[in-house]
């Protein structure tokens, strides 16, 4: 088979399938799809902000009104930690390649960089999310003292530990099942592009 034939065969597809547009509706469709996407992004951002906007006054209230020193300290630290978590997640998202107008190779580099940042974020979730959350919640619970509250403290701590373990495992699984296969694929593609 001649090489030119490859091109001929490839380009024979218009005889077998073609895209049809209803021009009058296409632009309306495209615009409404984009509007939907923008709403989705705005909703996601709003949800993140709501967690902070709702959380800060609640813990500020505890810090001000609850008389126990440990609870006050924990409440203030929880506010700072919450803000830190939001900033950390947002700054990792900033690297997501959103412009498809890069060259293919550049897009691969940016995707790899983004996936590596995501992987680092999830790999270290124990240190910036789980352990601080556990410690602060424990301090918060200990605030009123342990006298007569031990069974309750144990129950709450056990609940927190269970949630922490589940969060840790879910993040590990996301790295293993979602991020690593994509990262390996992107690495392989970059290698093919660079070494041909």
């Amino acid at each position: 088979m001649m090489e030119d034939e490859l091109i001929k065969i490839w380009q024979s597809s218009p005889n077998q399938e073609r895209a049809k547009f209803e021009k009058s509706r296409l632009m309306l469709d495209v615009q409404s799809t984009l509007d939907h996407l923008h709403k989705k992004i705005a909703y996601r951002d709003a949800m993140e902000q709501i967690a902070v906007v709702v959380g800060i006054p609640i813990f500020a209230y505890y810090a001000y009104h609850i008389p126990f020193v440990l609870t006050k300290i924990a409440s203030v630290l929880i506010i700072f930690w919450g803000v830190f978590v939001i900033i950390r997640i947002r700054s990792a998202k900033k690297h997501k390649p959103s412009a498809f107008t890069e060259t293919y190779l550049e897009y691969l580099y940016k995707t790899r960089e983004y996936l590596k940042i995501q992987k680092r974020l999830l790999d270290s979730v124990l240190y910036w999310y789980i352990l601080p959350a556990m410690t602060l919640l424990f301090l918060f619970t200990l605030g009123p003292g342990i006298a007569g509250r031990l069974p309750r403290i144990v129950k709450m701590t056990a609940g927190n530990v269970a949630i922490a373990v589940a969060t840790y495992l879910l993040n590990k699984s996301a790295v293993k099942k979602q991020l690593m296969p994509r990262l390996e694929k992107i690495d392989a593609l970059i290698e093919v592009m660079e070494k041909s």
């Binding site: 005889n15 077998q16 399938e17 073609r18 895209a19 049809k20 547009f21 209803e22 509706r25 296409l26 309306l28 469709d29 495209v30 409404s32 799809t33 939907h36 996407l37």
Partner: peptide
């Protein structure tokens, strides 16, 4: 994204 009805892929019979 959402499905767009204004685009159709037509298959021509063999």
């Amino acid at each position: 994204f959402l499905k767009m009805d204004s685009i159709r892929i037509e298959n021509i019979t063999i």
